[in-house]
Every structure is written in structure tokens, then in C-alpha cells.
Design a protein around this nucleic acid. Structure first.
Lengths: 196, 196
DNA sequence: GTCATTTTTGACATGAGTGTCAATAACCAT
DNA sequence: ATGGTTATTGACACTCATGTCAAAAATGAC
């Protein structure tokens, strides 16, 4: 095994993720990636084949963190608290970067990138996991009684709604408005939740 | 006024709208537009200046129809019926074409096209109108009592949720799933609505 | 130390899209 | 019908991005 990779794959993927996230997949070229990561275009082609392969690896990191942070916010057995923490975390993630970056999943879905089967698969997989995580949390003993919907339906509603929030973030970029909307949804599905 | 336009602006914009809607703005080039409309590229540049100008005109038609159809579905004073008809109409619109085209507003928002100020303006305007229309309907005498939220909050929730549905359409293309999700939202905000 | 292997690098060929322009054609008003 | 105005058309120049390749450089294995 000679001729060793000169760049650190980890930092390169981290830079790539940051770029994809802030610019959108479709608008990010190999030249952009080369500039942002400091790795030559040719090296990227040699190592990964094409842009999509790089994106998929970057997206895997994104999805893993996103889901992990969702899981982390869904502790306990108080529906209102769980949902509030979940939405806070999702909305925080949209505004975390230097420039508001929104939700990478939603951006990619609206991007035209779904034309690629592998990308579509990843996104479906990630959303499926997301729904499963929320469903599990809302199914815990004592929680369904706090809800106006069955846990599975509520979870699908919540996840679909987060997609809507992501779109609204793109259009208005107004964090407080998103928090208010999320609050409305929480009141509607967990009516006894204490207001924040 | 001599040298008269050889193409019919109305049919040309109609064709352009169909193309933008089915392919997405960002993925539609002037060459595509020329092919789809039968109008030469040069003529389009001469008549409109650039692609964005054509899009804005096509989008105006789209928005007008979308809002008109929303208005039409929000008659009466039964919250459940109104919302069900509204969501049916929104979802129908996504699946109306030969190929499912989703929601042009949401696609454009996820497209990178928001970088253009005029496009962003139009989309904000259209969503603002949409929220206003729903708010008016939910504020009619007798309706607020049927809701678990204030009319304005419910309207914002509904509109944000339609954006989420549009994203889910892109990802899964499953019409029935969208209808089910919409049903869940309706039960959560208008609990006494009869099930369909 | 030499070899074999792999990466790096810069260059090249290609294709797609944009925007402009001059020449040509069409047409209305007078 | 003639002139002035506007639209059409095809060509051109330019930019940007992709993907490939051969030469050069680097390094672990022997």
C-alpha cells in the first residue's frame, strides 16, 4: 500500500459537508469543493469518482448527527417537553452556521438532486429513521395519553412539519417565526403541554 | 408599432410554466424553454431579457391559480370541511400533470432560486396571500370555536404544513400518504371534524 | 536501495449554457 | 409603396463545469 493519501479524509469531508450545506448540492461544483477543501480536483476524482459519491459520504455524517441530536432531545415521558426540545434542536441546526443553512435534507430534496437514485435512497432512509425515532418516543408508556393523535400519526405529522419549517426558513429566514409555528403544532397535538 | 411578435405570448407562457413546473426552475435552461415553447432563444431574449423574467411571468400565473383554487376550496363555515377541501386541492395540484410536479413554490424555494431577490419577493408574496386567505376563512363567524388554535396561528400552521407536504411529495411521491398526513393535521386542529 | 503501487498535478478535450449582435425578414403607419 | 420600427434568425464569443490522462512525486514493502 504505497502512494499514500495526502489529505485527511475526515477534515476534507467536514469541509465538503459545510459547503454542501451552505450552498446546496446542486450549486456546488467540483471546483468549489476543491477550493473549499484544499484538495485538488483530480485527487477528488481519483479518490471518490464523482461529486455524488462525495456528497453521499458528507450526507451520511450529516444524517447521523441530525438523528443523534433528535434522539437526544426526545428523552423523558412528557410529550410537550420532548416536542419542544425536538423542534428547538431542529431549528437550531438550521441556524447554526455562519450563514443560515437550513436543513440539508430538505434542500437536497428540493434541489433536483432526487433524480439520483442513491441520493433519493439516503434521504428516504434518513426520514424513515427520523419518523421511527419520534414514533418510539411518542409511544412510551404514559405518552400516548398526552396526545390528540396516535403516536405513529403524530410522528409522521411532526416530521412532515419539520420539512415545512425548513422551507419556511429558506423563504423568510425568521427563526422566531419558526419557533412560534412549532409551538402551535405542539399545542395542537399535545394540548396540555405547558407553554414555554 | 411594426414588426409584430410571431409567437403567442399566452401559449408560450403556458408552455414555459409547464416546463418550469415539471423540471424545476434551476434545471430549466433557455434552450429547454426554446424547445418546449417553439420560440427561438433569441426571440425570448429579445422579448423578455432573461430566463428569470420569463419565470416570473409564468410564476405569476401559477400563483394566481393556486390562490384562486385555495379560495374556492375555503367556502362555508365548517372548519373540517374547509381544511379537507383545501388540502385535497393542494395535493391534487401536485399530482395533476402527466408526471407528478409537486408544488412550484416549494420547488423554487429549494432550488437555489431564492438567491434572486425578485423571485424571493414573489414567493413571499404568494405565501403571505395564502396565509391571509386561510386566516380569513378560519376567522369566519362560528369557525374559531371549532379550532384548537387561534385562526391566525392555525393558518400559519396549515400553510407551513403544506410546504412539508410538498417536500414529502418530492421524496416519496405517495399521494395517499400525503392525504393521510393532512388528515392527521386536520384532526389535530379541528378535532370535531367528521372523518372522511 | 529499489520496485511497485498509488496519489498528485496540470493539461486537455468536451459539452452545455449564456448573452450579444448583425443581418434579414416582417409589418404598420403614413 | 415606402420608410421606419420591431422581431427573427443563426452565428459568435465567453464562461463554467465535467471527466480523463499521462507524467511526476511520494511512499511502503521487499
Amino acid at each position: 500500500m504505497a502512494g499514500v493519501r495526502q489529505f485527511d479524509e475526515d477534515t476534507m469531508l467536514e469541509d465538503a459537508l459545510a459547503l454542501f450545506w451552505s450552498r446546496g448540492v446542486a450549486a456546488t461544483s467540483m471546483v468549489d469543493l476543491a477550493n473549499a477543501t484544499g484538495v485538488q480536483r483530480g485527487s477528488l476524482y481519483n479518490a471518490y469518482g464523482d461529486r455524488e459519491a462525495i456528497f453521499l459520504r458528507a450526507y451520511d455524517r450529516y444524517a447521523e448527527r441530525f438523528l443523534e441530536s433528535a434522539r437526544a432531545s426526545l428523552t423523558g415521558d412528557d410529550a410537550g417537553h420532548m416536542l419542544r426540545r425536538l423542534f428547538d434542536s431542529v431549528i437550531d441546526s438550521m441556524f447554526a452556521g455562519e450563514t443560515a443553512r437550513g436543513c440539508l435534507t430538505t434542500r437536497t430534496a428540493g434541489d433536483g438532486s432526487l433524480a439520483s437514485q442513491p441520493i433519493r435512497e439516503r434521504i428516504r432512509h434518513m426520514l424513515g429513521d427520523f419518523i421511527a425515532i419520534v414514533t418510539e418516543a411518542l409511544s412510551r408508556p404514559g405518552v400516548p395519553e398526552q396526545l390528540t393523535l396516535e403516536p405513529a400519526q403524530a410522528a409522521e405529522l411532526v416530521v412532515t412539519f419539520t420539512r415545512g419549517l425548513a422551507v419556511m426558513e429558506r423563504v423568510y429566514g425568521d427563526r422566531d417565526a419558526l419557533l412560534r409555528s412549532a409551538g402551535s403544532l405542539i399545542s395542537a397535538i399535545a394540548p396540555d403541554a405547558k407553554r414555554p
